[in-house]
Design a protein around this nucleic acid. Structure first.
Lengths: 342, 342
DNA sequence: ACAAAAAATGCAACCGGTTACACCCCGCCG
DNA sequence: CGGCGGGGTGTAACCGGTTGCATTTTTTGT
């Protein structure tokens, strides 16, 4: 059995209280006493039991990290780079991460089992939906939380990339190259990020004087398979491919789209240009690297964690932080003018 | 504040003890009482506080998952797919995962802070090294653990893919295609997996009657950057590239190698064939998909978790489980005969 | 030198459960 | 009719810390 605080107290001839304070560097204990207690603790190789400590002070020094819902997985590249950023900040501040088993429909019971009664001090979530049910749940339980992604519920902390602006950039670039039939692969309809990217696409087309053609807005789900299948479907029947360029709402779908195009012998970017969104590392592994709207993914994670910790450490907050980080188009060399122009 | 067990007890007119037993389905509680208590608990939406519960019974229902050391990161694709498998099994059994902040040199003090005194019931680790210092540490602290990766210390539970056999397969395939100058990019020297893959490479060459040429064994570190740089180095000086094929110890390095080759205008597989190891999902996103030795990554994770839970639930085990899972070569279409043969 | 203020420490309750053991009540047996 | 046995429940200690408040010790002021 590990040695306990009571034991240390006995060894030092003081009370548990003093030991506790000494180890917490409480200024109320006399420096020499403190010194001595620490010395003894070190000799006995004593370390306070975190569970007991957490129980006593009602906190856990643990943050719950909720990952994207199916069909996306915890192994989603975007999520992982983001997680990397989150973890680096949390760890710097002595927090651990708990990846809970949550498979909620609307964020209720399943979540409560793991997050509610004292397992975590706060939660970071991804992919807010319109009127996300999890928000009400967390607020009701008075649990601090931050979203990766803008929410449509006011008073909620979030950090996001500039989705609309990024989509706008992408479409503009394709237009500049001469494309006029620009398809878009959307994300899952309910996700706010998907909607904002779609809005950027629409706005760009409109401002450029192009019609917004519903037949060029294809439904995706942010997975590679989704991108692949939606493009396959539009390649059916031997008809001419209806677009000269595709803007995919994220890189995974862009990758899937490219695979589908390759399978029918279409070259990227010679025959069809493709631009993705996110700037996941994997995109750089392709040859040529994927043209994409680069989000500062790692930075987003760090910022999310920072905002949450701010809430936690400064107690009940004085206003909720919301931040939009800039995005930029990268690897623009890997798109081209449409065939008829070349 | 959440409602407590004492409160429920008062409401029911019984003692905390009875409530505790009723909720735990203790047979000593009269069925009707049990029924009633459960009913009341439900009405009050009561759920026992896990931290308190854990403190009282000295366990946590949490597993520590240690991730690879620098230069690899928590966002390493292999690790994440593996983590996915681990998590699915753990969650099925009601366990959570704790990703601790560990940056140990040889697995000592840093680790103890997060794992030792009662935060986790068990630990899963990756990437055992030769005479891994963490083993002694965990054993000393009487902490159940399982490694992903064969260890050289007897009596330790582990699960691994067939590293040597996989490497052997890869080299054999390259030989079959006509390659005779087959380079290998190794993993970090101290890692047992790296050594076993190197052994498979050596054994294959020897059995095929080829010399083992030290100049064709290039040092890598299991990162993409490592693969990239080692190949760049061997492309220096305008000399002819010394190999017609590369076997990289993992996929990330294979991807890095391919990038380096592309940068000097060499085509894969026309000019140089490349085979990786692991079969991470990202490899399938390349065009053409990466030829690689596919490990059952997800399954490895599941198995690791299962072995650990077995240790935990069946108390002190009567013999430690060790398992080697089979691997197979995939996407073999994306390697080719060496140029002079074509 | 003595009282008052300040500093240091101890006491004991508390966090929210679990569990060994004591206890009570009742039916059954001799 | 008294005692035994066992099911059902309560008591209280315990897990290992934290912390408000009381108490003791030391310092400071006059």
């Amino acid at each position: 059995m590990k040695i306990s605080m009571a034991e240390i107290a006995r060894q030092c001839g003081v009370s548990k209280a003093t030991v506790s304070r000494a180890l917490a560097d409480d200024p109320r204990v006399k420096p020499e006493t403190k010194e001595y207690i620490k010395e003894v603790a070190k000799r006995f190789n004593y370390e306070p039991h975190p569970i007991a400590s957490n129980l006593a002070r009602g906190r856990t020094k643990t943050i719950g990290v909720v990952f994207p819902a199916a069909p996306r997985t915890i192994a989603d590249p975007f999520f992982l780079e983001y997680l990397n950023g989150v973890s680096s900040i949390l760890f710097e501040h002595g927090y651990s991460m708990l990846l809970p088993q949550v498979s909620w429909g609307e964020g209720d019971s399943t979540m409560s089992q793991l997050l509610a009664p004292g397992r975590v001090d706060g939660v970071v979530l991804t992919e807010p939906r319109v009127d996300d049910g999890r928000i009400a749940f967390l607020q009701k339980n008075n649990m601090p939380f931050v979203f990766l992604g803008q929410t449509n519920v006011p008073g909620v902390a979030w950090v996001d990339g500039d989705n609309e602006g990024g989509a706008y950039l992408a479409v503009q670039e394709l237009y500049r190259l001469g494309h006029r039939r620009i398809a878009m692969i959307t994300g899952e309809r309910g996700l706010i990020a998907a909607q904002n990217r779609l809005r950027g696409y629409r706005r760009a087309l409109t401002e450029l004087g192009l019609p917004v053609n519903q037949d060029l807005i294809w439904a995706g789900d942010f997975t590679r398979e989704g991108g692949y299948h939606t493009v396959r479907n539009h390649l059916q029947g031997g008809a001419k491919f209806p677009a000269t360029a595709i803007f995919a709402s994220n890189d995974l779908m862009a990758i899937g789209a490219i695979q589908a195009l390759h399978e029918v012998g279409l070259q990227v970017p010679e025959d069809v240009s493709v631009i993705g969104f996110d700037g996941i590392e994997v995109g750089r592994y392709l040859s040529p690297p994927l043209t994409t709207v680069q989000q500062p993914i790692n930075e987003l994670g760090r910022e999310v964690a920072a905002v949450l910790l701010e809430q936690l450490e400064k107690g009940r907050r004085k206003g909720v932080r919301q931040a939009t980080l800039p995005v930029q188009l990268v690897n623009v060399g890997n798109t081209a003018a449409p065939p008829k122009f070349s």
